[in-house]
Nucleic acid binder design. Structure first.
Lengths: 137, 137
DNA sequence: CTACCTGCAAACAGTTTGCCGCCTG
DNA sequence: CAGGCGGCAAACTGTTTGCAGGTAG
């Protein structure tokens, strides 16, 4: 466990969810010379040994978190907000998939896409709202 | 509706699921001068008017398909295979999300990640199999 | 003539690779 | 001295942008 690797672990812990880029910035606050390449290589290693995990929140870069951070993520494809839900939400779906097609679901690896409560209201109230963004869809 | 646009529509129809790159290759078989930029711009337009839709199957490029192609996609993060399941699979989950958090789920927009039946068997049979690939996770 | 459409080149984000030098055992 | 580790530059994929010429109404 080299100093760089320890810093990456610390950064992941401190940031909660973070992209490799964000982790790099954070690490560089204490060790400016550290290269983004090292971040990627270290994250890959940390993931292989089970210390961290990553989740795809949508289009952009994946976010890394501690192994223990297990949630279902709900991203709003309208405003881009990310909500967390307990994993047991997917239990019955997972069971059904397993029974019907032998597919073992990894509920936390990719976020579910949809529209959050706030944006649903906005759509009702003012469909032509100028604050529209359309993050991904 | 310009010739280029028609070709893009035709390509999406013909290919079923395809990345912008694949669509471009296909279009260029009949119109070699067509640029990838045009593919992107056309797909964006076709999506806005509701002729096509796109789905994130994982890490890489999104895949475009006809609007009518509505399935839940199951990607195996081990072998990379993509299976299709009926959308009603997610109905009870969608209902629960709507009731509990006001989140309107778009079940078809992002693929569910997990391990397919074949790869689950492989893991049992031979965990150190040299054909291992680890597509994403 | 005006507006839209297209092609091309360039830029951009995110990620990976090759190489080389360094440090440690 | 051998192997792992890390820094740097370069390549690569996927995507977007600015610009300029062309074409149709």
């Amino acid at each position: 466990m080299t100093p760089q690797r320890q810093l990456v672990v610390d950064a992941v812990r401190a940031l909660g969810h973070a992209t490799p880029e964000q982790i790099c910035t954070r690490v560089q606050e204490t060790a400016p010379a550290v290269n983004i390449t090292t971040i990627y290589r270290t994250l890959e290693l940390l993931e292989r040994i089970g210390l961290v995990r990553h989740t795809h929140l949508g289009h952009g870069a994946p976010t890394y978190s501690e192994q223990e951070h297990q949630h279902v993520h709900l991203v709003c494809h309208h405003c881009g907000s990310v909500a967390e839900a307990p994993t047991d939400l997917m239990d019955q779906l997972a069971a059904r998939l397993r029974d019907e097609s032998g597919f073992t679901l990894d509920a936390t690896h990719v976020a579910l896409s949809g529209r959050c409560a706030d944006c649903a209201e906005d759509a009702d109230a003012d469909p032509t709202d100028s604050t529209e963004q359309e993050t991904d869809r």
